[in-house]
Design a protein around this nucleic acid. Structure first.
Lengths: 223, 223
DNA sequence: AAAGAGTTTTAAGCGTGTCTAAAACGCTTG
DNA sequence: CAAGCGTTTTAGACACGCTTAAAACTCTTT
């Protein structure tokens, strides 16, 4: 009845859709993300399509139906609220909260999630800066820019750090670049695509893998 | 690999064993508690026995092996800590925390449970008064007496309320008999087995179903 | 000791979720 | 355009966990 893994699939399809809004979501990408074989993903797609939660055409990838997206948003909401909770209330390091939230998100009664939200005073984002959908599935999408694309000389605030790049969270924490931190790009290297930033009185040189995994919010002030 | 329902069965076997330490635990009692058919319980017993978590003889009931008891105690620990957490931190009414904890207890990583325990400052009991096993499975068993068996005239403290008697928690709360409350038995009716108690300046008459579901702790003082 | 009642186990089946191995497909390349 | 490669789907299998219905067992009662 409940369908434990179904929601995981839906949430992962949702996230993949967000990362790449143009293409449909491929069987392989979902299988990779979930750590299962493509055959397993295909089997699940058939069940989800049968229940009208996704659109699925053979060899053609999948997309969420409105109903499926509702469910997916609910999972994402629980996931990100739990992350906030783990970080803010239980003081668990932000490198670990994603994995723990994955484990916990299905078992939480709605009332528990709602109470957590109230206790946290209705946070807008998870600890990594991703927005938390509200009860109705609405989420605010602020205007963010990839650090990779930021022009030199503008002071900005770190808004979001990709939580799924291995080792990045630890690195970002060491550099003092957690969401909320202020920084300014002082130089860009057009050959190797490194960017040089100033933050908290220190200078760092970031490679492309880092600068394309951090989103910033313009503050309107120049450094 | 993980085995979701297995732990539920083990914990229920453990609880039934505690309630009735002499007899082995019957198939039917486990099936009833879990809300499944006896056939399902039998099937699970075979799997648990195969994995050396219980001892099982056809038509002869089951008992936990040391290994199975370890696992069961871990589940009970998680369950009761989560109950405390839901009640004390999220302020969820104590009538509901048992059901919610049932739903949550399997999905919680050990570190999350440990942090909850620290946040709660290592509580001894769940909100209903049942002891919380420590990390190594040890639990303190204080000297408790059923209210049913308490002599007249002794002042005692409520220690434990059976959380699985329908409606009892609500009733006990209305009467002000939550764990920690002081009371004294002022009269016993030997015919209908009612007991009359004084608590918080009020008098109540409790039937057998209530008095055999509340444990008290002697305080050594007379009322 | 045989009968009957209640409990427990077996038997057969279903849905979920996973796997491996083989077949089908689709896209790029010679 | 055909070959080949990577992706996707099918086919067959398995473990878990549940069901119903029928058979087996145990225990009590006459």
């Amino acid at each position: 009845m409940s369908g434990l893994a179904r929601e995981d699939y839906l949430a992962d399809i949702y996230r993949l859709q967000c990362e790449n809004p143009h293409d449909p979501v491929s069987t392989g990408s979902v299988a990779d993300r979930r750590g299962v074989t493509a055959a397993s993903a295909t089997a699940m797609f058939k069940r989800l399509a049968r229940d009208h939660l996704i659109l699925y055409r053979n060899y053609g990838g999948v997309s969420l139906t409105p109903e499926g997206e509702d469910l997916a948003l609910g999972v994402v909401r629980r996931h990100r609220l739990v992350e906030r909770f783990l970080a803010d209330v239980l003081h668990i390091p932000w490198q670990q909260v994603d994995a723990y939230a994955d484990q916990m998100e299905h078992a939480l009664p709605d009332e528990v999630v709602d109470r957590m939200e109230a206790l946290l005073e209705n946070p807008y984002t998870c600890p990594h800066g991703y927005p938390i959908p509200d009860k109705h599935g609405h989420l605010s999408q602020p205007d963010l820019v990839l650090l990779r694309d930021l022009p030199v000389g503008e002071q900005v605030r770190v808004a979001r750090v990709n939580e799924r790049v291995p080792g990045l969270l630890r690195y970002v924490e060491d550099l003092g670049l957690m969401p909320g931190s202020l920084l300014e790009v002082s130089a860009r290297n057009p050959v190797d695509l490194n960017v040089t930033i100033e933050t908290g009185g220190r200078t760092h040189i970031l490679g492309l893998r880092v600068s394309e995994s951090i989103w910033v919010e313009r503050t309107g002030s120049r450094g």
